[in-house]
Computed example of a mutant assay.
Amino acid sequence: MSLSDKLKILKISLEESADAAAKKSQDFIEYSDLSLSASSLKKKIEDIYTKIGEKIYKDFKDGEPDILNLKVIFEYCDEIKELEKELSKINKKILKLKNKKECKQCGNLIDKKACFCDKCGSKQ
């Protein structure tokens, strides 16, 4: 094999390695962004839970468990439902980046191509 051929092979190998490194970096950045978004949504949900609890306790303390106040609580619950939908979408994207899926039976994270769960053994 000539020196020219060896250099071409080396060049191709370096380009492939650089492309793979760039892809991994890109995936890491996307994973970090998604994780940050997921954490933010979880914090918002926790804050709403707190607001619900505070509202219920305030009404109890004031002796005013009013049906109209349930409307506020239901609005909070609707907001949580929407945030959970967003969170679910983000979690699916994270799983895709990690090349993982959730076991249909127990929820354990397993390889996307796995036929059986490592934890519970159920067929996927």
Results as ranks from 00 to 15, higher is better:
54 E>L: 07
23 K>D: 08
88 S>Y: 08
104 K>H: 07
28 F>W: 06
14 L>R: 09
83 L>A: 04
66 D>M: 15
59 D>Y: 06
1 M>A: 11
9 I>G: 07
69 N>I: 01
3 L>D: 08
37 S>E: 15
19 D>S: 13
95 L>Y: 03
42 K>G: 00
60 F>K: 07
39 S>I: 14
53 G>W: 08
12 I>E: 15
16 E>W: 05
93 K>I: 06
75 E>P: 06
60 F>V: 06
87 L>G: 05
29 I>P: 00
42 K>P: 00
10 L>I: 06
28 F>T: 03
95 L>K: 00
35 S>V: 04
98 K>W: 07
23 K>C: 03
56 I>N: 06
122 S>F: 08
101 K>R: 07
117 C>A: 03
96 K>L: 14
45 I>E: 01
103 C>M: 04
23 K>G: 02
107 G>F: 02
99 N>C: 02
115 C>D: 12
116 F>T: 14
90 I>Q: 10
85 K>M: 07
37 S>H: 09
79 E>M: 11
103 C>W: 00
10 L>E: 14
35 S>Q: 12
54 E>D: 13
92 K>Q: 13
124 Q>I: 00
10 L>V: 00
60 F>P: 01
5 D>V: 12
59 D>C: 07
100 K>H: 05
46 E>M: 06
52 I>R: 02
26 Q>A: 11
123 K>N: 06
86 E>T: 15
74 F>T: 11
117 C>P: 03
27 D>S: 11
48 I>Y: 04
94 I>Q: 07
18 A>M: 12
114 A>V: 05
11 K>F: 11
78 D>F: 15
55 K>D: 10
117 C>F: 03
16 E>K: 15
71 K>D: 12
16 E>F: 05
108 N>Y: 09
73 I>L: 01
121 G>F: 00
29 I>H: 09
65 P>H: 08
123 K>V: 15
84 E>M: 09
94 I>K: 10
111 D>W: 07
9 I>V: 10
19 D>A: 15
102 E>A: 04
116 F>E: 11
97 L>V: 12
50 T>M: 11
11 K>V: 02
47 D>I: 02
15 E>V: 05
61 K>C: 03
63 G>V: 01
30 E>A: 10
85 K>W: 04
113 K>R: 07
15 E>C: 01
9 I>P: 04
12 I>M: 15
3 L>V: 06
23 K>Q: 07
43 K>T: 14
113 K>P: 01
83 L>H: 08
121 G>A: 05
2 S>N: 13
65 P>E: 09
13 S>M: 14
4 S>H: 10
31 Y>E: 12
12 I>V: 10
104 K>Q: 12
25 S>Q: 04
35 S>E: 15
49 Y>K: 11
78 D>W: 11
96 K>I: 13
68 L>S: 13
61 K>I: 04
55 K>C: 03
12 I>R: 15
67 I>H: 00
48 I>S: 00
68 L>M: 08
95 L>T: 02
64 E>G: 03
21 A>R: 08
3 L>F: 09
22 A>K: 14
2 S>A: 10
93 K>S: 07
23 K>I: 13
108 N>E: 09
3 L>A: 04
81 K>G: 02
52 I>L: 02
69 N>K: 13
55 K>T: 12
54 E>K: 11
75 E>A: 11
95 L>P: 05
27 D>E: 14
30 E>R: 15
67 I>V: 14
79 E>A: 05
11 K>Y: 12
109 L>C: 01
104 K>M: 06
5 D>C: 03
43 K>R: 14
103 C>H: 00
3 L>Y: 07
58 K>W: 00
